[in-house]
Design a protein around this nucleic acid. Structure first.
Lengths: 110, 110
DNA sequence: CCGGATCCGGGTAGATACTG
DNA sequence: CAGTATCTACCCGGATCCGG
């Protein structure tokens, strides 16, 4: 079921961050942008999201140090809109994120 | 954060079921409709959602046996649309709910 | 009977370190 | 750089009990 993985901690934030990075991002970059996330959780979430078909893992074994990039799939891009709606809703009702001014504020933690 | 309570198991399904019941429903009725949920989990989720301002608890202590009804607040009604979008998206990509034909199928577990 | 509260047990998610 | 390994906490579910 969708919420079993989308509702998990960090999942939507990860998708949102990949989206902000242009739909494709490296592991380390992702970890840097998501303040407070640990490698293990990030790896786990990425694996789940990949299994669900929301993103794809690309390995570049040639370059040194080697790169691993994660990219949104078509369904992954579509769900971004819903995540934005959810964020927008949360801000509109000021249930949380009280200090935030705009929907794209990087401090918003959904 | 929003997902801390919306992402919890049963939370969105509870909201959706209250909505289907006309925006207001009794505890027992809700439990009957949500196949497999226990009283404990239902109580917990309802309390959390009430604290977040998504629904209101109305107690009718007069009638015997007394009634307790839960009703969606304005934010609660609004978030329903997003939940529907999420469900619709999940169905469109057939990530799960493969047996389901329409968005309002009661078997869909999001 | 209705709407919970309470206690207990297992599984899993997440934090803290360490590694190829 | 991109992950594992281990350890702990807490969430979920079942059973039982309670107050009106």
């Amino acid at each position: 079921m969708t919420l079993e993985y989308l509702g998990r901690k960090w999942a939507m934030l990860i998708l949102l961050e990949i989206y902000k990075g242009g739909g494709r991002i490296r592991f380390g970059e992702l970890r840097n942008r998501l303040d407070g996330i640990t490698s293990k959780v990030l790896t786990t979430r990425l694996k789940e999201l990949e299994e669900q078909g929301l993103l794809l893992r690309h390995v570049d074994a040639v370059s040194v140090p080697f790169k691993v990039e994660y990219a949104l799939t078509a369904p992954g891009v579509e769900v971004i809109e819903i995540i934005k709606d959810l964020k927008s809703w949360a801000l509109r009702w000021m249930i949380d994120n009280l200090d935030c001014q705009g929907q794209d504020c990087s401090e918003c933690t959904l």
